[in-house]
């Protein structure tokens, strides 16, 4: 729990809350309620948009179908560029959902004035500015590339750890830890930092001055979603391809 800047009590136009959470108790588990509230909003948005787009599929797309087809083609292209023409199809839903979920989360955090909705504790924001969300997504990516490697090569997947030379084995093992770490912290740090910068500027100068930073924040949010999805696809590709086309024993 830390407050970066303690706003004067008389000046309640804006304040910063980092580390304050709306805790929900489920059995003996504690969860961050505000993260789930916004993530349900994001999930609802995505599902409703998909349902609207596919309710009446036309050969000549119009309106929302056009938009969602554009999104689909975008993530298909992203997966194909990383995974190659042969293997990308089964991974499109995973990588595409990563991209869409992170992108809509980031932008909903940046565009929707959640502050207007008061919570007992904590505040609504992008789900991706909570470390739990980003670590969850990063661990899923790790699981996904292990799954991809094992389903493609079986135990031969382990050969990639000693492939060029066994000397690099520790580094290869370390990589499996640094990948989810860097994935999760990159996303978390960028989104949280962006929201903090905007909040600090709003705190100092409430009008107009934060606007360029907010625009920059939108840009960063989109880029981070793209980076996360692209890296996930790249890791999966690496697990599938391995080092060259040597023996694929058992």
């Amino acid at each position: 729990m830390l407050n970066f800047i303690v706003a004067p009590n008389s000046f309640h136009l804006a304040s910063l809350e980092v580390g304050h959470h709306l805790y929900w108790q489920i059995g003996n588990l504690r969860v961050h309620g505000q993260v789930f509230l916004v993530s349900w909003f994001v999930i609802g948005l995505l599902v409703i948009a998909s349902l609207l787009a596919t309710r009446n599929v036309q050969r000549v797309p119009r309106g929302i179908q056009n938009l969602m087809e554009y999104a689909l083609e975008y993530v298909r292209e992203l997966s194909r560029n990383q995974l190659g023409e042969k293997d990308y199809r089964p991974w499109v839903p995973f990588i595409g959902t990563l991209f869409l979920f992170i992108f809509v989360s980031n932008w909903s955090g940046a565009l929707i004035p959640w502050k207007l909705i008061k919570l007992p504790e904590g505040e609504l924001a992008a789900p991706t500015n909570d470390i739990n969300t980003t670590v969850a997504l990063a661990l899923l990516v790790s699981l996904a590339y292990f799954y991809a490697g094992f389903s493609k090569k079986g135990l031969g997947y382990f050969a990639k750890y000693i492939q060029p030379t066994p000397i690099l084995l520790p580094i290869a093992i370390l990589e499996d830890f640094t990948k989810p770490l860097s994935l999760s912290f990159r996303l978390f740090g960028n989104i949280l930092a962006d929201e903090l910068v905007v909040a600090v500027l709003v705190l100092l100068v409430p009008l107009f001055v934060p606007l360029p930073v907010m625009l920059l924040g939108l840009f960063t949010s989109a880029i981070q979603a793209l980076v996360f999805a692209t890296l996930a696809a790249a890791y999966i590709h690496e697990a599938i391809e391995g080092h060259g086309e040597e023996e694929h024993a058992p």
Partner: peptide
């Protein structure tokens, strides 16, 4: 805390739902 695994499960659910209502029909289209 428990947010992490629940979020992971929720994300997988979202991927599964979107696979049915978004990826499959629009890819087919």
């Amino acid at each position: 805390d428990a947010t992490l695994p629940l979020m992971a499960v929720q994300f997988l659910l979202l991927a599964a739902i979107l696979n049915v209502v978004f990826y499959k029909p629009l890819t087919k289209a």
